[in-house]
Design a protein around this nucleic acid. Structure first.
Lengths: 110, 110
DNA sequence: AAAATACTGAAGTATCCACTTGACAATTCT
DNA sequence: AGAATTGTCAAGTGGATACTTCAGTATTTT
């Protein structure tokens, strides 16, 4: 039953947390450092680091360390994958609705 | 900082679990009863009931009880909201990229 | 009416996960 | 060089959560 897709797992798990979505909101506006994110969110830098790891693994954020400061920005890949997932599932039930419509049309003939 | 949106919270939380996404996969193919889902997933009917509650609250699934059997099917609202969320965030960072491009073009003039 | 089916509700458990603290490493500032 | 800044690592804690079992209700079947 389980066609396990670790990438999708990581993606949805990453998006499942409000704090991480808040980070995405912020980064969508402009790239920032981990410390700034921490101050803004009201949590420790350590916590932010952990979130960033997860977001990066999910392909939603990319980070680069210059000197001692790690700058984070939005990354496309994750959003693309998410959009693809929706498209797949949407077409899935849309096809089902079509079949249903066909069946109804069929039964009208009786 | 927190512009809390409970609907989005519920939505992403619902999608964050692999079992619940498996349920969506299955329902995308065809509507089913709770018991069938439980057999297919290899968990208790109780567990399925709990998942269904969450999926329903998120607007991803709708259920209807006829007699003693509860039939579940995909519901559009959740997917629509999800798609809207992506659109919002995509335009957000796309606008940023435009500004960045403008800045680069600007600095070329120096 | 009795037995089987399909689900619901309460309560417990075990695991996961977001967050912390405290110690450390690396870089920049004075 | 010394102090401040920025981030990383290891380990621990509390609360959420995905399950379970057990007991019960409503519906269908025989």
């Amino acid at each position: 039953m389980k066609k396990k897709d670790p990438a999708i797992d990581r993606l949805f798990h990453a998006l499942g947390d409000p704090t991480r979505r808040a980070i995405l909101d912020r980064l969508g506006h402009a790239p920032t450092s981990a410390t700034r994110l921490a101050e803004w969110l009201g949590v420790t830098v350590t916590a932010v680091g952990q979130h960033l790891q997860i977001l990066e693994d999910a392909g939603l954020v990319s980070t680069e360390k210059l000197g001692r400061v790690r700058t984070c920005s939005i990354h496309h890949a994750g959003f693309d994958r998410l959009e693809q997932w929706i498209r797949d599932h949407r077409t899935s039930w849309e096809r089902r609705l079509e079949r249903l419509a066909d069946l109804l049309a069929e039964s009208d003939k009786d």
